[in-house]
Design a protein around this nucleic acid. Structure first.
Length: 376
RNA sequence: GGGGGUGCGCCGGAGUUGGAGAGCCGGGCCAGACUGUAAAUCUGGUGUCUACGACUGAGUAGGUUCGAGUCCUACCACCCCCA
């Protein structure tokens, strides 16, 4: 794996680069659609590739481990073969489920014990077996097993949790380097910075993470309910410490506005369920602002979803028709809006990249943010 | 034509042995929320008004009663049975 940093903005920390993986290149900044259970909900791989132009998608270790199960994925020859996506894949480690399924787990030094949200069965995740599972899933980029702390979070808890995440990282790293990929192509392990919203913790965590010879680094534990100012401040602190020659992945972020602001702080990679979940709930992002397509005001608006879009789906279906599909609870509705939102997010990243390269990113970003946060 | 039954919310149910209904459950409709997906989910609203309070309301019109959605009479509508 190799990251080429191609240009850096002179007025802010925004960067454009290319990450080369065994399954192809990823041009940054990039948004990665979330495909937790081996599918980007409601979106065909064909559409991801040809209309959305996704360059990489996510999978989730916890969910895939529970269903279909690691052995099935191994038999299939890895997740790429299983779901038919032959471009890059990144798997999250299950660290987020330590946070989101908090009432179903116990955290110990050894690892986290979970009861399955599907059938209640008990499972133990350790740094070691999470590496083993991610070897079997076979994603190009795999994530360290961490604890994503909640917000708000007591300083002492955040500190202890961060320190354990660091110890878990050491164990992840050891297991990862002791084992080989199973399917004949390279995998990269990204460590994760924690530290909640505490500057000194973020600083020391970033320093710890930066000490690893990884191909890229991630920032976790943000976008969990903290004010945006805190999220930006922590991101800024961490980006100033993480090595410049490696991609920086801000996990779980966020709104289109969040993405643009964090690009300016030096982030290269994002993922978030927001474009797909909101799409299924009728919220779409356009170049003119945010639309709740279920609102009665769109019932006779026969303009297309986004007249300035660059992808076919968003230029084909009208607002009135898509609202009708939602009213009628037709499955095509969420499918169209999911494609639309993902295409919008990825277009936004392409535009950001273009403006970073042409040197007018900050001006463009400030204008764009004002437009895209409006409620239509 | 005769007999029986049923009528309240935008719709469908439930319930009311004469005793506090703007009022139960679904649905629909109108909004809102959603950030490394336990989420095609969740929350709220949905008679009227001069609106933290009032008013009107159980097919329609009367009647009995301290009190009627509930009992009585007539009419109307729908459903069932007979002719």
């Amino acid at each position: 794996m190799k990251f080429d940093l191609e240009s850096t903005d002179i007025y802010c920390s925004a960067r454009a680069g290319t990450l080369h993986t065994a399954h192809g290149k990823i041009e940054t900044p990039i948004f990665m659609p979330v495909g937790t259970i081996g599918t980007v909900k409601g979106v065909h791989q064909h559409e991801l590739q040809n209309d959305i132009h996704a360059q990489i998608i996510l999978g989730n270790t916890y969910h895939l481990y529970l269903r279909p199960g690691t052995e099935i994925l191994k038999q299939a020859g890895g997740l790429h073969k299983f779901n038919g996506w032959d471009k890059p894949i990144l798997t999250d480690s299950g660290g987020y489920q330590v946070f989101s399924l908090a009432h179903r787990r116990k955290i110990k030094e050894e690892g986290a014990t979970f009861s399955s949200h599907i059938d209640g069965s008990k499972h133990l995740f350790t740094p070691e077996n999470v590496m083993d599972i991610q070897r079997k899933i076979g994603a190009d980029i795999i994530m360290a097993f961490d604890e994503c702390t909640p917000y708000p979070c007591e300083y002492n808890y955040a500190k202890r949790s961060m320190e354990m995440t660091h110890r878990w990282l050491k164990r992840c790293w050891n297991r990862f380097t002791e084992t080989a990929p199973l399917y004949g192509y390279e995998q990269a392990l990204f460590p994760i910075v924690q530290g909640s919203v505490f500057k000194d913790l973020r600083k020391s965590s970033a320093e710890e993470i930066a000490s690893y010879e990884s191909y890229g680094n991630a920032i976790g534990g943000l976008s969990v309910g903290e004010p945006h100012e805190d999220m930006y401040e922590m991101t800024d602190i961490v980006c100033n410490i993480l090595p410049k020659d490696k991609p920086r992945y801000l996990m779980g972020v966020g709104t289109p506005e969040n993405l643009l602001e964090c690009i300016a702080l030096g982030i290269d990679m994002f993922d978030c369920v927001m474009p797909t979940r909101n799409a299924r709930h009728g919220l779409i992002y356009t170049r003119e602002g945010i639309i709740n397509i279920k609102n009665a005001k769109w019932k006779d608006d026969f303009s297309v979803l986004d007249p300035n879009a660059t992808n076919a789906t968003s230029l084909f279906y009208t607002k009135a028709y898509v609202r009708h599909l939602f009213q009628a609870k037709e499955l095509l509705g969420p499918q169209i809006t999911s494609i639309h939102n993902l295409a919008f997010y990825i277009w936004l990243m392409e535009e950001a990249r273009r403006h970073i390269k042409s040197g007018d990113f900050l001006t463009w970003k400030n204008t764009m943010v004002k437009k895209i946060v409006r409620r239509l």
